[in-house]
Each structure stands twice: as structure tokens, then as C-alpha cells.
């Protein structure tokens, strides 16, 4: 593993649930992210998988400073992100960009494509007007759009092209990290591969790091070097993607993998079905979050929260079985 770009250490985000209008009664917390630690290497892709409500998007929003941390620290290039201000904060904003799922909602409908792409650079304020023009032309070419796209409005483009515009905007300020929150799941099948290849090429060329969030395991496996599996606000398994697919250790990871769709009709996979459903992590009881659904639950699982520990080189699991 090369140099580390991002380090999340015991990151927590609780959303308080209150009742009452004037006198607030604190009923408890939704522990959306509860003690998550991971690192993202320079020029690498870290994938986060999990089902809706598992906290993967909240984790991304914490890195983007769209939410404030309840606890823990996020280090970026060795600096604590919660202490950034002034020019340092502006530099951080330029170095961390995002591409979201819905290319229809992520582009302002009343702005020209050129203005949309230029915005992070304009706000960064480091380059001259001519420099900005060149930079936009450069990124537009990089994502495979025609030059005259700058003059048009977003509604004149299809979904796949809009996602290219969103990627161009993310690249404009020359970032070190791009957060990809379900970047292909809203796109057509034949366009998905185009966008995934584009993201791969960009990483090869620029050495930018990605934090990839997706629910499609095949997409995460294909794009990321290391994958983390989240369940109800906890990171339950972190390992190199190939290894995760071949030897999943956590019962939840095993169930998730067994539920993935086959790639051909004769692929026989034993489906592991966890009883019950995912609930919101509102005032979760002590112990493992999977306790009530786990097929291998033991008494200790309901008492102690299993820590994420390294069971073999580079393979981290949070489970009392291992």
C-alpha cells in the first residue's frame, strides 16, 4: 500500500431524535455512522457497499464536510479536516469533489454547462479567466464531450452525457479525491460501461483517489482495490476486493454476496437468507448490530460489540467468530 490520502478514525455521526416544540425532549439518536475507521491510499479506489440506510452516504457527506462529525477524526493529507478554515479550507474544497447518482438533479438547470464546470475553479480563485477557459476545454475533452457543449444548457444532454459533465466539473479544480456516490446506477446499461471505463482512465492518467459508494457488488468489485462492507452504521469487513469475493468472512458479507445477481443462467449459488429486515440504527442495543438476524449468533454477540480486527494480512472483520 502506497501513501495514505484519507484516514478516517473512529468516525461517528448521530442524528438526535427530539420530541416537543419548545422544550425538546431527547428521545435518543439515530447512529447513522458509529465508529468507522478506514484509509484511502493515493491514486486508489476504496469501495463502500451496503444496503440503504447503512451509513455509506453519510460517511461520504462527512468527508465532504456536508455534515459535522459527532465524534472521531478525518485526516486528509495528514491534516484534521474539522480544524480547517480560511485558505486551507478553500484548498480542501478544491481537492475533494463529488459525483452523485442522479445526473438530472446534480446540474443546475439554469446554468450553462461551461459555468457549471467552471464553478469550483472560479470559487477556488487561484487561476486567471483565461486559465479557467483552458482548464474547462481540457476537462471537457478529457471526459469525451464536444467543445461546444460549454455553451449549452444541461437539458440538451442525455443522462450519460450529463454524468460526463458532472465528472468534468469534479475534475476541473484538479482534486486529489473524488467521491463517487452511485455514479452509474441511474444510467443505462450500455452507458454504464462507458462511464466506468472513463473513471478508470482518469484515475490512471491523473492518479486521483476515489471513494466509491454503490450497492451493486459487481460494480464495486470491478472498480475498487479495497472494499468495505457497512451494516447499520458499522464497518463489518474491510479487505481487498478480490479477497472479499473469494473468502467473505462476516456473516452479513456472505449473505450480501449470495444475494448478488448471477452473471449467467447456470451460476448456482446457495442463497443465504438472513431472517428479518434491516432496521434504522435508532438507539441500537449493545452488542453486534447483526445479532438478531445472524445465523451464527452466540451469547457474547448480544453483549459485546465486536471490534474491527485484522484476522489475516489486510483482512479486517468485526465478528466474534473470527
Amino acid at each position: 500500500m502506497g501513501e495514505i490520502l484519507v484516514e478516517a478514525r473512529d468516525v461517528k455521526k448521530y442524528f438526535p431524535v427530539n420530541r416537543g416544540v419548545i422544550v425538546l425532549k431527547h428521545l435518543g439518536d439515530i447512529k447513522a455512522v458509529d465508529g468507522v475507521s478506514f484509509t484511502i491510499g493515493k491514486g486508489e479506489t476504496f469501495g463502500l457497499v451496503g444496503e440503504s440506510g447503512c451509513g455509506k452516504t453519510t460517511t461520504a457527506r462527512l468527508i465532504l464536510l456536508l455534515e459535522t462529525l459527532t465524534g472521531g477524526t478525518i485526516f486528509f493529507d495528514g491534516k484534521d479536516t474539522s480544524e480547517l478554515s480560511g485558505p486551507e479550507l478553500r484548498k480542501y474544497r478544491a481537492s475533494v469533489q463529488a459525483v452523485f447518482q442522479d445526473p438530472y438533479s446534480s446540474l443546475s438547470p439554469r446554468m450553462r454547462v461551461g459555468t457549471i464546470i467552471a464553478e469550483p475553479v472560479v470559487i477556488g480563485g487561484a487561476i486567471s479567466t483565461n486559465g479557467i477557459k483552458d482548464r474547462i476545454a481540457q476537462v471537457i475533452k478529457m471526459v469525451g464531450l464536444r467543445r461546444d457543449a460549454m455553451e449549452l444548457y444541461p437539458h440538451e444532454f442525455s443522462g450519460g452525457q450529463r454524468q460526463r459533465i458532472a465528472i468534468a466539473r469534479a475534475l476541473a479544480s484538479n482534486p486529489k479525491l473524488i467521491i463517487l456516490d452511485e455514479p452509474v446506477s441511474a444510467l443505462d446499461v450500455s452507458i454504464r460501461a462507458q462511464i466506468m471505463n472513463l473513471l478508470y482512465d482518469i484515475q490512471q492518467k491523473l492518479g486521483v483517489s476515489y471513494l466509491l459508494i454503490a450497492h451493486n457488488l459487481a460494480v464495486v468489485k470491478h472498480m475498487s482495490k479495497v472494499t468495505g462492507v457497512m451494516y447499520m452504521g458499522k464497518l463489518v469487513e474491510v479487505v481487498e476486493s478480490q479477497e472479499l469475493y473469494l473468502h467473505p468472512l462476516h456473516p452479513y458479507t456472505q449473505a450480501l454476496l449470495s444475494a448478488a445477481l448471477p452473471s449467467h443462467p447456470d451460476e448456482q449459488r446457495e442463497e443465504i437468507v438472513l431472517p428479518g429486515e434491516v432496521s434504522t440504527p435508532f438507539n441500537p442495543p449493545p452488542g453486534c448490530r447483526l445479532y438478531r438476524r445472524c445465523l451464527y449468533a452466540r451469547p457474547v454477540c448480544s453483549e459485546q460489540d465486536p471490534p474491527l480486527k485484522e484476522v489475516s494480512s489486510g483482512h479486517f472483520v468485526a465478528c466474534h467468530l473470527h
Binding site: L89, Q101, S106, S108, I123
Partner: peptide, 21 residues
Amino acid sequence: GDFVRLAVVAGASKARIMLRH
């Protein structure tokens, strides 16, 4: 809308978001 969120990510000030977005 995601575009407002992305403006925050780009470092836009509140006034800028209100006026331009």
C-alpha cells in the same frame, strides 16, 4: 437538489448559492 449540495462541496458561499443557484 444535488446541484446545491455540489455547490457547497465546491466551496460556494451561502450568498453565492442563494444568488446563483
